[in-house]
Amino acid sequence: MSKSLVEMTAEIIQSQISSKQMTTEEIKAALNDTFQTLKSLQEAEANGIEAEPEETNPVMDPKKSIQRNKIICLECGQEFKMLSPKHLRSHGLTSREYRKKHGFSARQPLCSKALSEKRSQSGKERGLPENLRKAIEMRTKNRTK
């Protein structure tokens, strides 16, 4: 016995709610969007028409996705301290493609601001900026010879 669209929609949204906090308005919007998507897929299947892939809209404004203690994946809305290559692969993207798709610079870290600052401070404590400067100087000296 197959499930109705309402039952499938409810199951999908229940699993989303169990993995992230959602307001009542977000739940209503997610229910409506999911139901409409399932309905259009069902109609396309019944008519024998292949559904055209829709251009995915980001979950939120890309500028607001990188926050102090978390980064929000613009593909699925999940929250992380860092967007791992493994997670991005689940969306069929590399870090470079994700940055390009959502308008981030190539040097933008895909992690929370706090984690980025912590890494930067740790590197400074280990002397990385000084060592990097020395390595660059050595490279330029070797090129001029």
Rank of each mutant, 00 (worst) to 15 (best):
K3C: 08
S4D: 08
E7V: 02
E7H: 00
T9Y: 06
T9G: 00
A10E: 14
E11K: 04
I12C: 08
S15Q: 15
I17E: 09
I17F: 13
M22V: 04
T23D: 00
T23N: 02
T23P: 02
E26K: 05
I27L: 03
I27S: 05
A29Y: 01
D33Q: 09
F35C: 07
Q36L: 10
T37V: 09
L38I: 04
L38P: 05
S40D: 07
S40Q: 14
Q42R: 12
E43G: 13
A44R: 06
A44M: 08
A44K: 06
E45D: 15
A46R: 07
E52M: 10
E54C: 00
E54Q: 01
N57A: 09
N57M: 02
P58F: 02
V59T: 10
D61A: 01
P62K: 02
K63S: 12
K63L: 15
K64H: 09
Q67H: 04
R68H: 11
E75I: 06
C76G: 08
C76D: 02
G77C: 05
E79L: 13
E79A: 15
F80A: 06
M82R: 00
L83V: 02
K86Q: 13
S90V: 07
G92Y: 01
G92F: 02
S95L: 04
R96K: 15
E97D: 10
Y98F: 01
R99F: 01
G103H: 10
F104P: 04
F104H: 03
L110Q: 05
C111R: 15
S112T: 08
S112W: 03
K113H: 13
K113R: 12
A114G: 12
A114S: 10
S120N: 15
G123V: 04
E125M: 09
R126G: 12
R126T: 14
L128C: 13
L132A: 04
I136K: 02
E137Y: 08
M138R: 10
R139G: 12
T140Y: 10
T140H: 12
K141E: 09
K141V: 07
